[in-house]
Computed example of a mutant assay.
Amino acid sequence: MTLDDLRFFVAVCKAGSFSAVAREVSCTQSAVSQHVKRLERELGLSLLERHPRGVVPTQAGHLLRVAVTDGLGSIDRALREIEALVRGDGGSVRITTGATTVRHFMADAVVDFRRTFPQVRLEFQTEHSSRGCFDALAAGGLDLAWITLGAPVRGIDQRPVVELPWVLAVRTESPLAAQPFIAPTDLEGTRLIGLPGNSTSRTHLDTWLRQSGIQPVFDTSVADWDTAILLAELGLGCAIVPALPGWHGPGHADLRLVPIPALPVLRTGWAVRRWDALSPLARTFADTVARHWAQRPTAAQAPSGSE
């Protein structure tokens, strides 16, 4: 049993496929299978169930995956710190997050951190959902994940940093753009640009709409908040999105972001496997982002009106 055996096993569990892992690491499917078979021989039982569409862990496989994922994360962090000592540089901080997170939530903090720690490497890995961030974090090799906070996830600590009110992004000529705020009844039958179906923010929104008895029409779908707002600005429909500061200001004269005060705020922030196991650099980066947000004027965190 080797570390590579364990790494390949966890990768296959995550991907649900031997071939997907083989493509990712540029090796043969047989080579990936051999790593798993060696573990099964040593343990004396099957770790994966083979199905026509892929593989899933057996009960024993699930137990091993949980234990290995936890252990590999600690080993990877230790190896990175040892490598930094050997090189004599400042080490690294690895973050997984969405494609536009740096722009909206941590641009100033990144500049501040780089100025304070010029030798530290910042490495960003893009995922398309909070679930993807959780999986990447659990797989090890990453320090922090910036996510939309939702239900608790086993083995992951979540810490809120930002509370975002919701707005209706709409082009200025729309009748809804003239309203001071949007009530739930204003959304009945409205044609909306839909957020990703598997995202935490979409789940949050759908729950509220259902509880409010509102049935809008989602006839366009996008992969992220920014694209939804852009399409609304172009006049392709309306979008219910968190109030992102980057979309306010004179550069968006054709766009209005109308507050939806009845919709509970969306919380975003950090997720880690264990706060007490974070490296000092990773903790400092997380605290730097939180500090910059705490110093923002209230109006910047909860924008409203037609700026």
Rank of each mutant, 00 (worst) to 15 (best):
G155A: 05
E163R: 10
R87S: 05
Q59L: 12
C13W: 02
R103V: 04
T185K: 07
G155S: 02
P196W: 02
Q301G: 05
S30Q: 12
S279F: 11
C238P: 07
A239L: 01
G61S: 10
G90Y: 09
D219N: 09
V162M: 11
S201M: 13
I95P: 01
R114H: 07
R291K: 13
R115L: 15
R267T: 06
R94I: 08
A139P: 11
W208A: 13
E40Q: 11
L187N: 00
T298Q: 14
G140L: 03
W247C: 00
G269K: 02
H204D: 00
A177C: 01
S279D: 13
W225N: 03
P297T: 03
R7E: 06
A107S: 07
L257F: 03
L234Q: 15
H204W: 03
P165F: 03
D206L: 10
V265D: 06
H128F: 11
D70S: 05
P242L: 11
F9G: 12
A232I: 04
L231R: 11
S279W: 14
L187R: 03
V21W: 00
V222E: 08
P175M: 05
L85P: 02
G246H: 03
H35N: 13
T2D: 10
R7N: 15
S304C: 14
R291Y: 11
V120L: 05
T288D: 00
R256K: 03
G98F: 12
L64N: 03
T172V: 04
T126G: 07
R274D: 11
F18R: 04
K37W: 13
R291N: 09
W247A: 00
R65P: 05
I156S: 01
T298R: 14
P259Q: 05
E123H: 07
Q301Y: 00
V111E: 15
T148I: 10
